[in-house]
Amino acid sequence: MKLRILSLFTILLLFSTLSMAQDKPWKQHNRWIWGPSVGYQYQSGNFLKVSGWGLFAPNDFQYMKIDAGANFSWMEGKTTVIPELGFTYYLNDFVVFPFLKAELTPYTITPKVGASLFSIVDLGIGYGFDYNTKKNFKPIDGITISVGVNIPLNFHIY
């Protein structure tokens, strides 16, 4: 019951934010779109990714996204939280956006390529390079796959 109420509240909040954004003239809109994101990544183990992000358009056909968050994992008998900073470059703006992404943690750097549906659902693949193995933890390197959902809180169509 609580989950149903929380889901309904989240949907209502999202729709009210989107409808208020449509009422403003173009010049009053902030050129940044921002919001939270949640995702899953496999890279030498399973990670839940939670972050906040901001997206802007340097021109009419390309977008750039900056995100900062944390990766949560249960490995080797303990919960681990790893901070992460990411930069994504979306190559165009037609339904499926191909992208290039770089993620940096205190332990790895991970370049990725992928595709995104309207920059809301991201599917990526890449390779993580371990440069500083976490103490009492296995190296986080190798092939990585990820899926993420970006929730825009101030989205506008025009």
Rank of each mutant, 00 (worst) to 15 (best):
residue 10 T to V: 14
residue 116 S to I: 01
residue 124 G to S: 03
residue 36 P to M: 06
residue 2 K to E: 14
residue 11 I to H: 02
residue 11 I to G: 02
residue 62 Q to M: 07
residue 29 H to F: 15
residue 131 Y to R: 07
residue 45 G to E: 03
residue 90 Y to D: 08
residue 8 L to H: 00
residue 158 Y to R: 15
residue 16 S to M: 11
residue 115 A to W: 02
residue 154 N to D: 11
residue 18 L to N: 04
residue 108 T to Y: 08
residue 141 D to E: 08
residue 148 G to F: 06
residue 47 F to S: 04
residue 49 K to A: 10
residue 7 S to Q: 11
residue 87 F to G: 03
residue 63 Y to T: 00
residue 53 W to E: 11
residue 3 L to V: 00
residue 96 V to R: 08
residue 107 Y to G: 06
residue 89 Y to I: 01
residue 69 G to T: 10
residue 131 Y to A: 05
residue 102 A to H: 02
residue 128 G to K: 03
residue 48 L to T: 10
residue 84 E to C: 03
residue 58 P to R: 09
residue 106 P to W: 09
residue 43 Q to M: 08
residue 153 L to A: 15
residue 114 G to A: 13
residue 153 L to Q: 14
residue 133 T to D: 07
residue 130 D to Q: 11
residue 66 I to D: 07
residue 13 L to M: 08
residue 49 K to R: 13
residue 97 F to A: 11
residue 92 N to Y: 07
residue 127 Y to N: 06
residue 61 F to H: 12
residue 109 I to E: 05
residue 12 L to H: 01
residue 4 R to P: 05
residue 49 K to M: 15
residue 111 P to A: 09
residue 29 H to N: 13
residue 38 V to E: 07
residue 77 G to N: 14
residue 158 Y to F: 15
residue 67 D to P: 02
residue 125 I to M: 14
residue 119 S to M: 10
residue 49 K to T: 12
residue 104 L to W: 04
residue 55 L to I: 02
residue 155 F to Q: 12
residue 20 M to T: 14
residue 3 L to F: 15
residue 112 K to E: 13
residue 157 I to L: 12
residue 95 V to E: 12
residue 74 W to F: 13
residue 46 N to T: 04
residue 131 Y to G: 00
residue 32 W to E: 04
residue 123 L to E: 07
residue 136 N to A: 04
residue 90 Y to L: 01
residue 96 V to T: 02
residue 115 A to D: 06
residue 69 G to S: 05
residue 157 I to C: 01
residue 24 K to C: 01
residue 14 L to N: 03
residue 97 F to H: 09
residue 35 G to K: 10
residue 144 T to N: 12
residue 117 L to E: 05
residue 75 M to I: 09
residue 6 L to C: 12
residue 117 L to R: 07
residue 90 Y to M: 09
residue 127 Y to W: 15
residue 9 F to E: 03
residue 35 G to P: 01
residue 90 Y to R: 04
residue 122 D to L: 09
residue 94 F to N: 15
residue 104 L to Y: 04
residue 75 M to R: 12
residue 24 K to I: 05
residue 112 K to H: 12
residue 111 P to L: 12
residue 55 L to F: 07
residue 125 I to D: 05
residue 16 S to G: 00
residue 142 G to A: 02
residue 30 N to W: 09
residue 68 A to D: 01
residue 31 R to K: 15
residue 74 W to G: 13
residue 7 S to W: 10
residue 58 P to Y: 06
residue 59 N to E: 06
residue 117 L to H: 07
residue 156 H to E: 15
residue 94 F to S: 15
residue 62 Q to C: 06
residue 97 F to I: 10
residue 79 T to L: 14
residue 98 P to N: 05
residue 20 M to G: 03
residue 141 D to Y: 11
